[in-house]
């Protein structure tokens, strides 16, 4: 790790000013569970760190209005255990409590988690030219394509990259139509979470649409009764403290015994948090039975493409989503 400077900012404005003044090599750090880890691996090489974990009011959790609001620096552990979130929006709470360990959830922020970088083994372990990686060294190639690709994406991959988007929380937020509040030099803007992530296409090193000096100052989720009929189902190589092989975020707005609007997103299988619109369309107006759930889930994977070792994710993903749909549906009865 090369020498670096470190300053702690008190407000977002102060942080942005410090960032701009620091110039090239500046990075924000919040919990640091991802950035500091990647610095130790030599993948991230900041020269100046601006700490935004303690910005005034940035850890706010507000569930009183017509939306849930989480400040960018709210801790994952605190949001997971918020009384309203854990009672009425289980999909959100579970996506957090099933991520990482309690130690890391006490450090990591819900804003920083949106920007977590991939766990692709070729991305993480290939520094010094051992393996090419278009994310790490643009244009160098991709060792995962045709390589040991058991963990890689089956949805959204390009000829340049098939790395999985690793998060759980962004998947749940995607299902729940969250919006992201970003503060930059020229003020604040709000975007749907779906616009935060870039598909890899030919430029997999460009992962997010957030500006270099922008800060995630908040996450808002519209309140909906579907939160009560919701679940985050995560399947891993071990029962706890592992990244998803496949995961499904489901929340159902019911119309009697039929599905009104289904909110469905997938994790562990795609290059970005993946909204499964085809499954949602299939479910609209139907009653939920085992057969219908599996058909909807299969539709979600219609465009999936397997590599050498990850074909299992397509069937596992469909069955996981089907289970999640049945579980969410059973809560409405």
């Amino acid at each position: 790790m090369k020498p670096l400077s470190y300053v702690r900012a008190g407000t977002a404005r102060e942080a942005i000013d410090a960032f701009v003044a620091a110039g090239d090599g500046a990075r924000y750090i919040a919990g640091g569970t991802n950035l500091y880890d990647l610095m130790k691996l030599g993948i991230e090489r900041p020269a100046h760190l601006i700490d935004i974990a303690d910005l005034e009011g940035a850890d706010r959790i507000d569930t009183d209005g017509d939306r849930l609001f989480f400040g960018g620096a709210a801790l994952m552990a605190n949001v997971a255990e918020d009384p309203v979130v854990s009672r009425d929006y289980l999909v959100l709470a579970e996506s957090l409590s099933k991520a990482a360990s309690q130690q890391l959830r006490n450090m990591a922020t819900v804003g920083g988690n949106l920007l977590q970088r991939t766990r692709c083994p070729y991305f993480r372990n290939g520094v010094n030219g051992t393996y090419p990686c278009n994310k790490r060294e643009p244009g160098s190639g991709c060792a995962a394509l045709g390589g040991l690709d058991r963990s890689q994406a089956v949805l959204g991959a390009s000829e340049a990259c098939n790395a999985v988007s690793p998060g759980d929380w962004p998947v749940a937020l995607m299902a729940m139509d969250a919006t992201i509040e970003l503060q930059g030099r020229d003020g604040t803007r709000v975007i749907p979470i779906s616009e935060l992530y870039r598909p890899p296409s030919q430029t997999p090193h460009l992962e997010f649409t957030i500006g270099r000096e922008e800060i995630v100052t908040g996450i808002a989720v519209p309140k909906t009764a579907a939160g009560r009929n919701s679940v985050y189902l995560k399947v891993r190589d071990r029962e706890s403290y592992a990244f998803a092989l496949v995961s499904a975020a489901v929340a159902l707005e019911m119309d009697g015994d039929r599905v009104g609007q289904a909110h469905v997103a997938l994790g562990g299988v795609a290059t970005v948090p993946w909204r499964a619109r085809a499954a949602e369309a299939f479910l609209r107006g139907r009653t939920l039975d085992r057969e219908g759930a599996l058909a909807a889930a299969t539709a979600a994977f219609a465009d999936a493409r397997a590599g050498r070792h990850n074909a299992f994710k397509i069937e596992l993903g469909a069955r996981t989503l089907a289970d999640a749909l049945i579980t969410a549906g059973s809560k409405s009865q």
């Binding site: 640091g32 569970t33 890391l104 450090m107």
Partner: peptide, 15 residues
Amino acid sequence: GRRIASCLTMAAKAH
């Protein structure tokens, strides 16, 4: 009072 991983916590954050 909360458990953390001290290896992923920058020392400066203890201030």
